[in-house]
Design a protein around this nucleic acid. Structure first.
Lengths: 344, 344
DNA sequence: CACGTTCTCTGAAACATTTCAAAGTCCGAC
DNA sequence: GTCGGACTTTGAAATGTTTCAGAGAACGTG
């Protein structure tokens, strides 16, 4: 039967003794077809093992059933958590989610975007390599719903979802100050990254508003934000003369913090007594570290979920207005800043 | 112009003053069209901002340009590394990769597979919740190229790629024995998981072949293989009477090992002196732990890459034969089993 | 100049759906 | 009986590509 071909609507129609249109109705508007024929068609479908061809559906209906997320760095669990939030929202809207990974390379990003355009996805969420890249404007010019996640673009040409990084920097350093630290390091980079710049700015603001000297907030720049960069920052920290050496470090993300933690413990330091550490993002592995890491929590899944909702609004609501959503970060204090005796 | 519609081949043809077929040729067989008209068509394309409609292409050509990976657990970085390997192979073959996450739930898995079938993806790679699930047979019956990753199915109805888990268990425990440990715990579960069973089996084999008593290889079953399960296993370990308490633990994956490490250090144990720990998988975070984790390395990206090659072979080579690929795991010794004084 | 080749280009068919106007059918009410 | 309305079903058009047989043009050869 059917000589091997996978069955089409036509085959189902023939088997059930109805017309093409009726089979389509059974799938798309079951309420208009009588119970008797509906059942007959459904039986024919399962008997033939019919599976609707999504390409044909999409071609004719003109609307795709998928969203896409182009993530920045697959090795950072943070982005997977964001993706998970998107996926949940997509699921609620009965859509599939295409996940791509640019690995921080602009060329890969462009390639992915081009493919997604060809697929005519309903909307694109992206944590871009460079939020100012012209190929992003290209997308909005084409009318593809677009939401920038965990970054912000120049004003209002598209939606974005992010966390208040300045505030994040403030609460991290405020916490360290409260713990009595008088010399604090800020570790992160490159500072051309908007994130890094703003977290540093927040740190500096609160530091000076607490009446501390700018000299006691030491900026240790890194090339990137990986565990390895954290380790090497730790070495640089250890190399400072004792009276200049900070007693606490605020890292611009958790990977840096984990690297710093590892290097410090390996070097025989006690955390938090010799060195307190605060990370940023609050990925799962922050809490799972040998000394559980204090971190500035981003609502990772919420970020994704909100972004997905924005992109869906843009895709379906003709009166959509672009919005810049900003979430509030939250300090999660753990053992890496609060010495055991002082915890519950 | 074009009153807002996104331009089609027809529009390009009109703009360039050629026929539909010629435009198609420019895209698919540029060598058959003369340089002059080719250039003319290309200019028309960029002027109009033409983007090929993949649905239409796929519908007519009958062949999709995407692969899919249904991963088991998005919170375990191991699977993302596998995905990365697949992605690289897909890229080489000029295909896109669809990544789905079943989150260890059979219902989600089925939903994803159903969608993928509708998309007519070229092939499916999957780390299934249950390798024996009937809906997998359904796929092969339909003729969809299928490769099982990091699991093995009953004999030869489809390809699979995995690591020799028995050997993995052997080398882990052999290493611990070499370090002089006389009582070792195996932590993992549930043992209905093929992986866990085989790693345990390997551990037992080598243990007895070394002339040790089975009573000194203690199996601590866990409900799942998360960091939290690792912590609670650590508590149970601590609860054992001193003379029964193992001096080393072999964990069935790195997440367990990280949890165990955290709990142990928190409880004041020295690692490896009081408790040595071996993990499995060798995810990035294993090396990044405060006490870098000894682990049985799986060639994660290679696994993915090989799986992708198999699925492509099945998709394109009519004489494809199903194969069960087995990689060899490798012990990576780090500080969690080798005490500092003894390292280089 | 007729002829075969080679190189380009064309036009129509096909792919598997959805959509929608129109045609049927049924039923109760007048 | 006939009419009107409600409920079902049908058939054809349309979606944007690719493919392929064949039409034309250009050109060298005999």
């Amino acid at each position: 039967m059917l000589n091997g071909r996978t069955p089409s609507v036509k085959d189902v129609a023939a088997a059930a003794g109805v017309s093409l249109g009726t089979v389509s109705n059974v799938m798309n508007r079951p309420e208009v077809v009588s119970a008797r024929t509906r059942e007959r068609v459904e039986r024919a479908m399962t008997e033939l093992g019919f599976v609707r061809n999504e390409s044909a559906r999409q071609l004719r209906a003109g609307t795709s059933r998928t969203l896409a997320y182009v993530m920045l760095d697959g090795t950072n669990p943070f982005f997977h958590d964001v993706a998970q939030g998107i996926e949940m929202a997509a699921e609620d809207a009965d859509l599939s989610l295409f996940i791509c990974n640019s690995n921080s390379r602009s060329s890969r990003e462009e390639l992915h975007l081009d493919r997604l355009l060809q697929q005519r996805v309903q909307g694109i969420l992206i944590t871009p390599v460079d939020p100012a890249a012209p190929h992003l404007d290209e997308l909005t010019r084409r009318g593809v719903p677009l939401v920038v996640v965990d970054r912000v673009r120049g004003v209002d040409n598209c939606c974005s979802v992010a966390v208040d990084d300045i505030l994040g920097g403030r609460i991290a350093v405020e916490h360290l100050a409260e713990q009595g630290h008088e010399r604090v390091a800020f570790i992160g980079g490159p500072d051309s990254l908007g994130q890094v710049g703003e977290r540093l700015q927040g740190a500096r603001e609160i530091w000076s508003s607490l009446g501390r000297s700018p000299d006691d907030l030491i900026y240790l720049p890194t090339d990137a934000m990986t565990v390895a960069d954290g380790r090497s920052a730790g070495e640089r920290l250890a190399g400072l003369p004792a009276r200049r050496r900070p007693t606490a470090a605020f890292c611009a993300n958790d990977l840096l913090a984990l690297g710093l933690l590892q290097q410090s413990i390996g070097a025989g330091l006690r955390v938090p007594d010799d060195l307190a550490i605060v990370g940023f993002d609050d990925i799962e592995f922050a809490a799972a570290a040998a000394v559980p890491l204090t971190s500035v929590r981003q609502p990772r899944q919420e970020l994704g979920r909100a972004a997905a909702q924005l992109v869906l609004d843009e895709a379906t609501n003709p009166e959509h207005k672009h919005r810049q959503l900003q979430f509030t970060p939250e300090l999660v204090a753990r053992a890496s800043t609060v010495s055991r005796s002082r915890t519950v």
